[in-house]
């Protein structure tokens, strides 16, 4: 099956889908080959079904296949990535904030991460616990950084994997939390900036529909 996929699709595309699916985490059951193959089979089915429609069959089949090609990825991967990004960032902020409570009283970073992830039970720590079982903390943090969609958090996890002492870790965590707060502020400013445009468009559509139904339609009924 993998040979069929490698034959049809370019390597860069397969790697792109692979990195996206990896960002969904280790608890995700979707694999690159199953995703691409299932999409291919469904696209062929849709093409065959719609081409049977007289006159416009070919046009409709091409349109629906293209629509399905992008929607399938959006539904199965992109939407889940957006939710995972938000959830993992929130859980990581919570975890690292609580970690700062007693960071210097542990003998090693490995003890600190193991004990704290056992007490604080959320999606981020569940992922960390699974990775800490088979590996040392450096490998676990590197592996975790490759499955986090948030770029800032992933970079800081890589930095944490190379630090040797609790004091270094504390500085990195403080910098991470500051950067995430600044990122939140930036996204908030963007949201505020776009609000007038979104609100205006929404109000225009609402008033056109409601006033059209309420005032104009009774005259012609």
């Amino acid at each position: 099956m993998n040979n069929i996929i490698a034959f049809i699709y370019p390597k860069t595309y397969i790697n792109k889908i692979d990195s996206k699916i990896k960002s969904l985490g280790s608890f995700n059951k979707l694999t690159t080959s199953s995703f691409i193959l299932s999409r291919l089979i469904l696209e062929c089915l849709i093409f065959l079904i719609f081409i049977l429609i007289p006159i416009y069959g070919l046009l409709l089949s091409i349109l629906f296949v293209i629509l399905f090609h992008f929607l399938y990825e959006d539904i199965l991967i992109t939407s889940k990535l957006i939710t995972r990004n938000k959830d993992m960032t929130k859980d990581a902020i919570m975890y690292f904030n609580i970690l700062l409570l007693n960071i210097n009283n542990y003998k090693s970073i490995e003890d600190l991460l193991l004990i704290s992830s056992n007490i604080i039970n959320n999606r981020f720590t569940k992922q960390l616990k699974v990775l800490l079982k088979g590996n040392n903390y450096q490998e676990a943090l590197l592996e975790l950084s490759s499955s986090i969609p948030n770029g800032i958090l992933a970079d800081y996890l890589k930095d944490m994997s190379i630090c040797k002492s609790n004091q270094e870790l504390e500085i990195i965590i403080h910098n991470l939390l500051n950067d995430l707060n600044e990122n939140n502020l930036e996204s908030l400013n963007k949201k505020i900036g776009l609000l007038p445009l979104k609100f205006t468009i929404l109000v225009i559509i609402f008033l056109v529909i409601v006033l059209g139904l309420l005032i104009v339609l009774p005259k012609y009924m």
Binding site: M94, N97, I98, L100, L101, N102, N105, S116, I119, I120
Partner: peptide, 26 residues
Amino acid sequence: YIYKALEYGEVLNLSYDVIFNNIYNY
């Protein structure tokens, strides 16, 4: 978040002022 921080703090025998300062900063 508050009760998770308090649980963690109680396991480690931390004082409530340290825990609440952390919660307030969060």
